[in-house]
Each structure stands twice: as structure tokens, then as C-alpha cells.
Design a protein around this nucleic acid. Structure first.
Length: 510
RNA sequence: GGGCGCGUAGCUCAAUGGUAGAGCACUGGCCUUUUAAGCCAUUGGUUGAGAGUUCGAGCCUCUCCGCGCUCACCA
């Protein structure tokens, strides 16, 4: 049972009062002829056409949420906000009667959804306003919105004098955040536009969008701990997928040459400003292409999205001026590490030798790490933070890339790249391993490397190997965190700001 | 998981260890073109939860809860 605050009790009493007066505070149907923006635009157009003469009377029925009320005796001004903007209402006792104005002033509150009909005019101070001839309640708000006061100037600007700012409340009650902070609605409109543009780009190039299982008997395709669930009737444990990779590549075996999927991945790991337990991933696989072709497609795709969504390839992100114009900088990992650490990884073919070299840098890596893990450590410790402008880092160590194809003549290195922007990883791609015998031995190797830590052990996927034995075309594969792209294109520091309902710890009330 | 910080009215924020306050919102009154409308009068609190020190705790100590930053983890 809800516990009501004193403010809520007052509003509940108003609901009773409305019903007692024969007015339903939650009617079934509503009417509307214009949105606020449409009403203002068509009135201004009519004004322009009329020139010096007064424009013909323009009737309108509007609907929206009450965001400001200024009662002045026998006249009340109010603002309603709808999906695309705000408009002022003018209620006068002469037009609607003193009783109805009294009803409005006594029982209508900020946050209520209302409908108002009348004609559009301009007030003395010049604001386009609905002169209300009739109005009704559409939905009574029991709880006041957690909003401070806004100032609406006559030229349509809204000045925020205080706002809902508590990041926890904003994330837990995103509905309230959206209702009182219009710029949040813009972030999620832009996110939708990003996702739409990604689909368009891939669709136009002959990629087929597919859907593969989220509940998987064997998880794979990434090194992450999975969420475990259980099917009761089948008495079977299932994992929420940590990547789409192994299923999408099965489709290449089935002669689908270009496939992609955009959807949710789940990783049972730490939560941070760039990690959420569930996140949106885009993966595509492209038969007869290699990682260099994927690299080109990647920079084109991101540039396409930025152009579509923002109309520019130059983006301000957390104070950095980023330029997504292709071609992006290409930096071989070995070269990048040599420049930032002075260590040439090619001169250290074993973990022991690389560890000794790293000790001299003053940063201490995990002494049990494999060579690949040590290189990964060097990457995140020294190189990653320097990669602000979009950069392709390519040629990765083999032992942290069990699904990527080796570089010809270099058994320690695979054909893999990651794109870094603003110091964090945006995407990951490689020339996919399609030799079933090599793949099997890589799985076995991983099993050995991770044997100590059971949860991270990469399970052998026999069905995947069976598929590959039928023959998999050479191909390039790609994966990107869509939330991270959304962060870049909305200038948000935290992944929580681009997720409508980010994961938060349970509270006692819940 | 570690370190640092934060949590006070519906919202935004004050308050030397000494009676918990302001603005907005709310409630009542005046006001027929206002723009955070204005003026007058009110109301509103288990200071995140619990324990301790003290004559006295929003403030000091401890435990717990939540959030933020950061480190670790993270193909």
C-alpha cells in the first residue's frame, strides 16, 4: 500500500471533489487538433499571410501536462507541455464563467494532463497563446512532479531556475526525469536515431538482420562471466548470452553471406560509468572480407551515423573535439606500445620476458598473467588513455583472441583491430578464424589458460565446431557497444545517461 | 571487492557540538494580459537507518543502506 504524503493527500481530496461534482478525473478519451508546436507554427504562418490585417480566427484543441499556473483573480495564465513543446493558456472568467475558473484554480494542479479548446491569439507581451473557451481534466496527477520552477519568457524560451538533479532519483524514476527534464527526452530520441541509422547503413549494403538465441545452453564469443538461469520443465541450466558471435558465424556456414544483429548482451561483471550488466551490442559478419575491409566499413558506418544524426562529423565529447572523418588513424599495436612504453613486444615472445621488461615501468602487472594479458595490461595502462581521436589499433596477441585468425608468418599475432575514441574502446573486429581444427585447439588452449578460474573458462562449443567443419567462408566480423556510440554522440560521460533504465542496486522499499 | 566523498522539507540548497532554516512548490486570502507574476498569512522534518560519546549530535565515533568519483575486475 502506498503511503501518501501530505501533498498527495490534498490531491486525492481533489479527485474526490471532482467526482462529487460529476467530473471524471481519468476519462477514457481525449481530443486534440494540434500539438503545441503545430499550433504556434500555423498561427504564425497565418499572421504572416494576413500582413497588417488581423489573421482569421484559428480554433485549436490542445492536450498536455500542466507545467505552470499563474492565477490573477478573474484571469489565469498557465503553460502546458506536450510531446514537442509548450504553449501558454489564457483562461478568463468572462469567457468560461467564474465557476469554471474557480474549478480550475481549486482542483487543477501542476503535473495534471488536461485538454483545452479555444482560439489562438497573441498576448500583449507577444506570446502565442490559447484563449481557452473550454477545458477538461484528462488525467489527475496524484504525486507532484519533482520539479522546481521554470520561467517561460514571451519568446518561448524556458529558463530553468532549478531542476531535478539527484542522479540516483533521475535514474530510478526515469519517468519523472523525462517528465521534467526535456533534454533527457532529446538524448533518447537521438539514441533511437543512432540505432535507426546503423540499421539503414547495414541494410543498404546487403546485410540481413537476424535474431539469435538469448538463452543459450553454452555461452561464448567473449571472455565474460554469464548470468545463469534455469528452464524448469526441461530441467536445464541456460545462460544469457554474452555475445552473438558463435550463432552469427553459424549462419555464414548456411550461406547467408552478410548478417547482423543488434540486441542485448548480458555480462555478470562490474558496473561502472562504461559498463552496465545488460547492454546493446551490434555485431556483423561479412563473408569474403578481411579485417582491413571491416576497418574501412567501420569508419564509414560511424561517419554515416554521425552525419545522419548530428549533420556533422565533428563532435564535442567531454571537452574534446573529435573528428570522425575517414580515414581514421591506423596504429599497429606493437608500434603504439613501443612509443608509449619503450618496450617492443616482438622482442619478448614469452610472458616471463615481457613481465621482466614491464617491471621497469613502475606499474605492476599480475605476475600470473599470460603474455596476451600482459600486453592487454600495457594497452589499457599506457596506450588507451592517449587515444582520443578515432584510432584503429590493429594486430593483437593471439592468446587473448581465440576466435581470430593468425597473421600469416607471425604465430603470436592475429588479424584483429579495436577502435578507440576518447580513451575508450568502441568496437572490436577481426578476420574470423574459419579452420575447424585450429579453432578446436584454440578452445582447448583457452580451457587450459582459464582452468584455475572456473567461471571465466571458455566452454567448448561442439556444435559450433561441427558447423565450421561443413565449411565457413573466409570472413570479417565486427562488434560494437551501441551504448558507447550513443555516449559519444550525446556527449554523456556515463552509460547510465544513455540507458532509460540502467541497473541500480535494490533498495529496501523495492 | 578496495579507497575517497555525499545523503537535511516534494525540488534546489543553508545551518561553530547549543531552539533545524531559505527560495520555489503546497494551503488560505487579495488581484481581469501574466512570464520563477506580485502582495499578505500559514503549513511542511524520524536531518538515509541503527548504535555510541556528550549535560546536549544534522555536525564527533562505529555499523549498515543507497548514490557519486576512483582503483581493481572486464577478449
Amino acid at each position: 500500500m502506498a503511503e501518501y504524503t501530505s501533498l498527495e493527500k490534498i490531491r486525492l481530496a481533489k479527485i474526490e471533489a471532482l467526482r462529487a461534482a460529476g467530473i471524471e478525473p481519468f476519462p477514457h478519451r481525449a481530443e486534440r487538433t494540434h500539438t503545441s508546436t503545430q499550433a504556434i507554427a500555423s498561427f504564425e504562418k497565418a499572421e504572416k499571410e494576413a500582413g497588417q490585417a488581423a489573421p482569421a480566427e484559428m480554433k485549436a484543441t490542445l492536450a498536455g501536462r500542466l507545467r505552470a499556473v499563474r492565477p490573477m483573480g478573474k484571469v489565469t495564465f498557465a503553460h502546458i507541455e506536450d510531446g514537442d513543446g509548450r504553449i501558454q493558456l489564457f483562461l478568463r472568467a468572462n469567457d468560461i464563467g467564474e465557476d469554471k475558473l474557480e474549478l480550475f484554480n481549486r482542483t487543477f494542479d501542476l503535473g495534471d494532463f488536461i485538454q483545452a479548446a479555444g482560439f489562438i491569439f497573441r498576448t500583449r507581451t507577444g506570446e502565442v497563446t490559447l484563449h481557452v473557451q473550454d477545458f477538461r481534466m484528462l488525467s489527475k496527477a496524484v504525486s507532484p512532479l519533482p520539479a522546481a520552477k521554470d520561467e517561460a519568457t514571451s519568446d518561448g524560451q524556458v529558463i530553468r531556475h532549478a531542476a531535478l538533479e539527484d542522479p540516483e532519483l533521475r535514474a530510478r524514476q526515469r519517468y519523472a526525469d523525462l517528465a521534467v527534464n526535456p533534454e533527457v527526452r532529446q538524448v533518447f530520441r537521438r539514441r533511437a536515431a543512432i540505432i535507426r541509422a546503423l540499421r539503414q547503413f547495414l541494410d543498404e549494403r546487403g546485410f540481413l538482420e537476424v535474431e539469435t538465441p538469448i538463452l543459450q545452453p553454452i555461452y561464448g564469443g567473449a571472455a565474460a562471466k554469464p548470468f545463469v538461469t534455469h528452464h524448469n520443465q526441461l530441467k536445464q541450466d541456460l545462460y544469457l548470452r554474452i555475445s552473438f558471435e558463435l550463432y552469427l558465424k553459424r549462419l555464414l556456414v548456411g550461406n547467408l553471406e552478410r548478417v547482423y544483429e543488434m540486441g542485448r548482451d548480458f555480462r555478470n561483471e562490474g558496473v561502472s560509468y562504461k559498463h552496465n550488466p545488460e547492454f546493446t551490442q551490434l555485431e556483423f559478419y561479412w563473408a569474403y572480407a578481411d579485417y582491413l575491409q571491416v576497418m574501412e566499413l567501420t569508419e564509414q558506418m560511424v561517419a554515416y551515423v554521425a552525419e545522419k544524426v548530428l549533420g556533422t562529423l565533428r563532435v564535442t565529447y567531454q571537452g574534446h573535439e573529435l573528428d570522425f572523418t575517414p580515414p581514421w588513424r591506423r596504429l599497429e599495436m606493437r608500434q603504439g606500445l613501443k612509443e608509449t612504453t619503450g618496450i617492443d613486444i616482438a622482442a619478448h615472445p614469452t610472458a616471463e620476458s615481457l613481465f621482466e621488461a614491464l617491471k621497469k615501468t613502475g606499474k605492476m602487472p599480475d605476475p600470473r598473467a599470460t603474455r596476451g594479458k600482459l600486453i592487454d595490461f600495457m594497452l589499457s595502462e599506457f596506450l588507451e588513455p592517449t587515444l582520443i581521436q578515432p584510432t584503429f589499433l590493429y594486430n593483437y596477441p593471439r592468446d587473448i583472441s581465440p576466435l581470430a585468425k593468425s597473421k600469416p608468418g607471425d604465430p603470436l599475432t592475429v588479424e584483429r583491430f579495436e577502435a578507440y575514441v576518447a580513451g575508450f574502446e568502441l568496437c572490436n573486429a577481426f578476420t574470423e578464424l574459419n579452420d575447424p581444427l585450429d579453432q578446436e585447439s584454440r578452445f582447448l588452449e583457452m580451457g587450459r589458460d582459464y582452468a584455475a578460474e572456473d567461471e571465466e573458462k571458455h566452454p567448448m562449443d561442439d556444435d559450433y565446431l561441427r558447423a565450421m567443419r561443413y565449411g565457413m567462408p573466409p570472413n570479417g566480423g565486427f562488434g560494437m557497444g551501441v551504448d558507447r556510440l550513443a555516449m559519444l554522440l550525446t556527449d554523456k560521460h556515463s552509460i547510465r545517461d544513455v540507458l532509460l533504465f540502467p541497473h541500480l542496486r535494490e533498495t529496501k522499499e523495492n
